[in-house]
Amino acid sequence: MMRFATLMKHPADWMTGKGADNAVVLTSRIRLARNLANVPFPGWAKKGQRQEVLEELLPCVEALDCMKDGFSKPLESLSSVQKQVMVERHLISREHAARGEGSAVVIERRQSISVMINEEDHLRMQSIRPGLDLTAAYETLSEFDDEVAGAVEYAFDPALGYLTTCPTNLGTGMRASSMLHLPALVISDQIGQVLQAVNKIGLAVRGIFGEGTESLGNLFQISNQSTLGESEATILRRLERVIAQVAKHERNAREKLLEDDPDMVCDKIGRGYGVLKHAWIIDSKEALNHLSLLRLGGDLGFLPGETVALCDELLMEIQPAHLQVHNGSKLSPEERDAIRAEIIRSRLQTLQPPDIRFIKKTGGEDDTSPDLGIA
């Protein structure tokens, strides 16, 4: 099995957008909640029962072909910093990181599939892919789910579907979400209208680390809220349609900003570049917001196209737990801010200033209405 140090060393394919258009939609994620039949769910289970579930599920998940040479650990054997690294990589939830004895995590080598055992449910399985690719992420995870179902019996009701700890997950037990980078909608003050329209059609909008977190670096998660009464295919079709519409509005907003006020766009990207290249102390929030502008500059042509992937790697590397693992010791907030600035300066060392010589009016589509066209 893979060691934690190896997991840290290699960014996942979805983190760097390998082989996908991820300029607006960074990632697509599918999560399935499942429980074993005739066993108390984790929140009601006694310590011994949780351990029995772990002993049944862990070898079953580890034995699957895709988990060969993967990472597998009981949570009690991981430090709080190691668990927080996995939260920052979106491989486990904050709730799972708070658990210890009787819980475990199994992660596929490329980090595109991860499994939480004894989180809120006995199994929380997820698949992540770069770009807008929810259907492919679901198909991958559905095959994985079928293999697990061949080895254990799930708690299932013909009328209610998969039984879960939280009633909002009943039915398919599926949560589908995409992470979007929406700086132009934020800069042009249209983000509120667009997100309100998304909420009105029954979808959830959250921050960078999911429920209860704020949007940093102009990153937003959009996901389904209902899981009962509709098929997985229906949920995915609607969600992909809405996310594609939001991405189109962001594209149009980027073009219109360049058309209407190119000097302002140049200024914002230039300031972000200047701060990141020369700051000696920088906190997470400020760093993420400036990296967002650099990422925008890479997409618009102010900076080389590979700047987008570089920013995506830095978005992960400068998180608090990643910094502490990188440094090999616990750090105070002040020490983290100094090391974060040092890492960013080092990674951006060869990045030339934004090129504004050939900025022209692009004549982008004047379509910035928040109407998502969803009945």
Rank of each mutant, 00 (worst) to 15 (best):
M2N: 01
F4Y: 08
G19E: 06
A20L: 11
G48S: 15
V53I: 00
L54G: 03
A63H: 13
K68I: 14
K68W: 12
P74S: 14
S77M: 03
L78G: 00
S93H: 10
A97M: 07
E101T: 15
I107E: 03
S114P: 00
D121E: 05
Q126I: 14
Q126M: 14
D146F: 07
G150R: 07
P158K: 01
G173Q: 06
M179V: 10
K200H: 04
L203E: 05
R206E: 05
G207W: 11
F209C: 14
E214M: 03
Q225H: 13
T227D: 13
G229C: 09
A247Y: 00
A253M: 04
E255A: 15
D260T: 08
M264D: 15
V265I: 03
R271L: 02
V275R: 00
I281D: 15
K285T: 06
L293G: 08
L294Y: 04
L294W: 05
R295A: 03
P304L: 06
T307Y: 10
A309D: 05
M316G: 08
A321N: 01
Q324N: 06
P333E: 04
E335I: 02
I343E: 00
R345Q: 03
L348F: 09
T350I: 07
D366Y: 14
T368Y: 08
L372G: 00
G373Q: 14
